[in-house]
């Protein structure tokens, strides 16, 4: 079953195409990722999905409902973790959850029950009655995730869920997101942490300048665009000449040479024996290789 269907979805800000005709669909129960450098249009796409930004073209359906026509019905059934934390600073952690529940019309006793459960789930029970300003960045993020779960959403939208968090906090959040998937929740997330996408996403798209460049599972994309393994060595002119002579295809990234290889031993052997390189690294290809290959190495913003 398709939870989200987008067809030629488009968002213009004046003359700037933030989202430039993208088509994708998200299936029930999967974790679907949007990857892309800063300014690619990920946040804009998320905002259109959760009905706070109006599309300027194309078609977008969530739960089969048009986001332009049925925003209330859609928002009732989804949870949102925005890119920027926005807890309500006038209230405690617990009150943040119960007050948010009121916006959904959830009765008080039910809201309090869910709030206690979610504080437990997100390991925030100790901070139950703490004012918001005493929470660390990781705790605030977890609170925002707990808040997004108050209405027991069928679809959870997460815009860079682990941005700026330490490894412990990231791992905790990943574990919780996988748990949510296991109980049937559909998740859509954006990230520019490629390891995060590789670990979590069942399928993902890589976006740049408002367009989708590729779509697939992390393993498929790596296989298709980066090969099995990567052989790396330091670059210098003689070495480059030698590789050319041996007709090995390579790419130069700053001071490093990379060769995509399905048979890395052979390449490594040539580099050592014929080109006189001693320090060679052989590693598995990752999503990061795919990402850099497709979106280039120039800095964004």
């Amino acid at each position: 079953m398709e939870i989200i269907t987008a067809h030629n979805l488009e968002k213009y800000f004046g003359t700037l195409a933030a989202v430039d005709g993208i088509s994708f669909s998200v299936k029930k129960g999967e974790i679907f990722g949007f990857l892309g450098p800063n300014g690619a249009g990920k946040t804009t796409a998320m905002k259109m999905i959760h009905c706070v930004s109006k599309r300027t073209g194309g078609d977008l359906r969530v739960f089969g409902l048009d986001t332009d026509i049925e925003p209330r019905m859609i928002k009732q059934r989804l949870g949102v973790v925005p890119q920027e934390n926005n807890p309500d600073p006038d209230f405690t952690t617990f009150q943040n959850l119960t007050i948010y529940a009121r916006y959904f019309g959830i009765p008080r006793s039910e809201a309090e029950k869910r709030a206690e459960e979610l504080l437990e789930f997100m390991q925030l029970s100790e901070k139950r009655d703490a004012p918001i300003e005493t929470l660390s960045g990781g705790m605030k993020r977890r609170l925002i995730i707990a808040r997004a779960l108050m209405n027991e959403p069928e679809l959870l939208i997460l815009d860079e869920p682990t941005i700026g968090l330490d490894p412990q906090a990231r791992h905790l959040i990943w574990e919780k997101l996988r748990h949510l998937r296991s109980i049937g929740c559909t998740l859509v997330m954006t990230t520019h942490y490629l390891d995060e996408a590789e670990r979590l996403c069942d399928r993902l798209v890589i976006m740049d300048s408002g367009k989708i460049l590729v779509e697939g599972s992390p393993a498929e994309l790596v296989r298709k665009y980066a090969g099995k393994e990567i052989v790396e060595a330091a670059a210098n002119p003689e070495f480059v000449a030698c590789l050319k002579e041996k007709r090995i295809e390579f790419e130069v990234f700053g001071d490093t040479i990379q060769v995509q290889a399905d048979d890395p031993q052979i390449i490594a052997q040539i580099m050592m024996e014929s080109c006189g390189r001693e320090r060679i690294t052989v590693r598995m290809a990752t999503l990061e290789d795919v990402f850099l290959k497709l979106t280039g190495r120039t800095l964004r913003e």
Partner: peptide
């Protein structure tokens, strides 16, 4: 400053 409205309109509120 508090982005309270942003949080609210992500719920069924208009």
């Amino acid at each position: 400053y508090q982005k309270t409205f942003d949080a609210m309109i992500a719920t069924p509120l208009s």
